[in-house]
Design a protein around this nucleic acid. Structure first.
Lengths: 218, 218
DNA sequence: CCCTTACAGTCAGGTTGTCGTCAGTCGACT
DNA sequence: AGTCGACTGACGACAACCTGACTGTAAGGG
């Protein structure tokens, strides 16, 4: 669910990071230069950033500043070969949140990313109205919470990810049933029904059917 | 003015930290043992914590769990002489936010604290009445004390650290069994049961199961 | 030294929630 | 009216979880 933005020019390290993030169950946007990162992170806004300091077209700290200027407030973990004290200080003063010098263990990247994520994802206390809360594994409506099973959670998550737009049936199936499981066509209907039934007591009828296409949330 | 909570038993380092914090323009609560820290930080709630791992009366990670269980959500910077990868991972899995190994430059402490302070949020609900005491390795509810074994303590500590949110099974296993020990899947269930059984006589039924995901404390 | 006690981790058996499916019905569009 | 897609309620299978008991190990006391 959380989206990690990576900017690293060294191909070997880039692929290691990509695989590690996937193994952690995180989605990622991986880029190889500052210019590419600026464009990519503006479209899909990551929850946490992993930035190399030594990029071909810019200093990673400048990239950090540029991203912050663009309104992206995600925490930043700097990766670098330089371990001088002044380098570290410069990294933090550019708005970094953590700093790791090469060579490092991928396991340490993992736990430090988790620590950063812990602080950001829970920093969405109230957007009023109805919120899908991954920490509680539930849908929260004005302090009332509706527990969801894992499958219901994935399905509703995909639906709410594109509010007001129609999500096709096969897209929903792919999201709710990863690892390409084969499920009967009717299974999706069943789960939509189950979710609707849980929402009904709260006076919510937010899932509407678009016949022949899919469902939509609003 | 932000308040920094320090717990460090080595007098020399303690005074260095105290002076450095004052020079940074921060107020501080400085303690030398886990027991003292628990009392002091409950009265004046710090915005950031600096904890030594090797304390005389408890492990710093247990202190961190206990503070979190008490509803103190401030970010934690661990200080320690141990720089093994597993030690670092154990620190983060106990709920730490950063980890610095001795010897370190005071300037690095400074920038890392600043980074943590930048992201602090207030609003910490109190977990009325029930407290985890790392010095006694016990749960205290209105002057009634329930003894916990070390494993039970770590497990319950991790659970109470994120009140109302679901903690995944593998996260609990990682917190309760550091050093990457492999434990049977069912062992976690057993320990949850033991803790529930100890809480039951006090009228507490605060651990609920979220099937397929983990457990939660409320 | 043996005995006791406490803790850790595992096991087998029972219980229950979740999953995916089916058969039948409803309702919209042709 | 007929057809097709979605809705509905119920069901069996299975995995997740609960529960009580058991074994191994280490520390402390007589």
């Amino acid at each position: 669910m959380p989206l990690i933005g990576v900017c690293e020019d060294e191909p070997a390290l880039r692929s290691v990071l990509t695989r590690a993030l996937r193994a952690m169950g995180h989605d990622s946007v991986v880029t190889a230069s500052a210019g590419e990162a600026l464009r990519a992170f503006a479209r899909r806004r990551p929850d946490v950033l992993v930035l190399d300091i030594g990029l071909p077209d810019a200093d990673g700290r400048d990239l950090c500043l540029a991203l912050r200027a663009a309104g992206l407030d995600a925490p930043v973990l700097f990766l670098t070969a330089r371990d001088g004290l002044h380098d570290k200080i410069a990294g933090f003063e550019a708005g970094g949140d953590d700093y790791l010098t090469k060579p490092f263990e991928i396991a340490e990247v993992r736990v430090r990313l988790d620590a950063l994520l812990r602080r950001t994802t829970q920093a969405t206390p109230d957007s009023g109205g109805v919120v899908l809360d991954p920490a509680r594994h539930a849908l929260v409506v004005d302090d009332i919470e509706v527990g969801l099973t894992p499958t219901e959670f994935r399905l509703l998550g995909r639906l709410m990810a594109d509010p007001a737009s129609v999500v096709r049936r096969h897209t929903l199936v792919a999201a709710a049933w990863p690892h390409g499981a084969m499920v009967s066509d009717n299974t999706l209907d069943s789960y939509v029904r189950r979710i609707r039934k849980k929402l009904e007591p709260l006076g919510l009828a937010e899932i509407s059917t678009v016949r022949g296409v899919g469902y939509r949330w609003r």
